[in-house]
Design a protein around this nucleic acid. Structure first.
Length: 339
DNA sequence: AACACGGCCAACCGCCTGAAT
DNA sequence: CATTCAGGCGGTTGGCCGTGT
């Protein structure tokens, strides 16, 4: 009845593979192919279980594995696929030739996930982090002096009651003002007023999602992120300068910061305001990078550094489509309300 | 030089699904 | 139909290595 056991569980070697073991496995598979992992270790003269052999082969020894740093295009693909598929690493790996699910998973957990978190984007939902947005949960707490439980169920120290009283007061005063202050901005960028805590507190009256959709309402949006379109620069307000990495030197780039436009490779654009110290961010880049490190490959002709090669420049590039706006909003929240 | 710390990643663990018996 | 296991998958771990003090 049933199948016979695949292998003896005892007496099999575990841990890192030696070069000799690798060679045995490679030679066996080159000669006989792979498929029956149950019998393979014995036939190949390996004191390993079939599962270990399969893993070693698929994640490391396979000849078509691409090693080395992930390219920008690969990173972008991973993020886009993850937003659609979630932690389906094998499904994501199937669309990235030469990359294994294990490698993508590791790269996500060690690089991309942390970066998204720093940007205020929830790496699971790809939306703004609710733990940072959830001011209303603080304000709605009826007993200010009690400790506060955050979204993760972690007890946090009591919030300064004076601060909360001030916040409540400001909120109350803002309720009598125009609720459309965000839409009043003709360019669709985040208004500077948002920096003001009173405006920030006003936001808590609105549903987070509706707010996010509201901000880019004046911005041309090309639709699906998978569609790579040339940006339509004709739609840019004339007062905006734009950045062309093909022709613009880094100094020009920095000098234009006051009127900087970020355009992702779907053609969406956004005026960058200096709310979250974008200038110093770029200054730091310039000290570590002798050249702007920009390239003109892919479909990003006008872009905020998303085709560049340094870590921090890439960081900006993840703010594509709606995430761009979410990011800015999140940064404003972060720097004004929680610091 | 020695130690502590954190990041990275190969490898393992445990669960699930579908096939074999 | 029930049982058993191979294969596949995602989550987690632990050791190595680089960096900071």
């Amino acid at each position: 009845m049933g199948r016979s056991p695949c292998c003896e569980k005892n007496g099999l070697k575990k841990g890192p593979w030696t070069a000799e073991e690798d060679q045995k496995l490679i030679e066996y598979i080159q000669k006989n192919g792979y498929g029956n992992w149950r019998t393979l270790p014995k036939n190949a003269g390996l004191q390993r279980c079939g599962k270990s052999c399969r893993l070693r082969w698929t994640n490391y020894l396979r000849p078509d594995i691409k090693r080395g740093r992930f390219s920008f295009e690969e990173e972008e693909t991973i993020i886009q696929l993850h937003s659609m598929l979630g932690n389906k690493w094998s499904a994501i790996a199937a669309r990235l030739p030469g990359r294994t699910d294990n490698e993508i998973k590791n790269y996500w957990n060690t690089h991309i996930r942390k970066r998204l978190l720093r940007m205020g984007i929830d790496p699971v939902t790809h939306n703004p982090r609710l733990d940072l947005l959830d001011i209303s949960s603080i304000l709605s707490s009826s007993i200010y002096n009690q400790s506060h439980t955050n979204l993760f169920g972690i007890q946090q120290p009591a919030v300064n009651p004076e601060l909360l009283r001030l916040a409540a007061s400001l909120l109350s005063s803002q309720r009598n003002q125009s609720p459309n202050f965000i839409q009043e901005n003709q360019f669709g960028n985040i208004p500077h007023q948002v920096q003001d805590q009173s405006h920030l507190l006003q936001l808590q009256n609105q549903d987070h999602q509706s707010l996010i959709q509201e901000i880019p309402s004046c911005v041309p949006y090309s639709g699906e992120s998978s569609q790579l379109l040339e940006p339509n620069v004709d739609q840019l307000p004339s007062s905006f300068s734009h950045f062309n990495p093909d022709t613009c030197a880094l100094n020009d780039w920095q000098s234009n910061l006051d009127n900087f436009i970020a355009i992702d490779n779907c053609g969406n654009y956004q005026q960058r305001v200096n709310d979250f110290d974008f200038s110093s961010h770029l200054s730091n880049l310039s000290t570590r990078s002798s050249s702007p490190a920009l390239n003109s490959n892919s479909n990003s002709t006008y872009i905020n550094g998303s085709s560049s090669t340094t870590e921090d420049e890439r960081e900006i590039s993840y703010c594509s489509n709606n995430n761009l706006f979410k990011y800015e909003y999140q940064e404003i929240l972060d720097s004004n309300a929680f610091m």
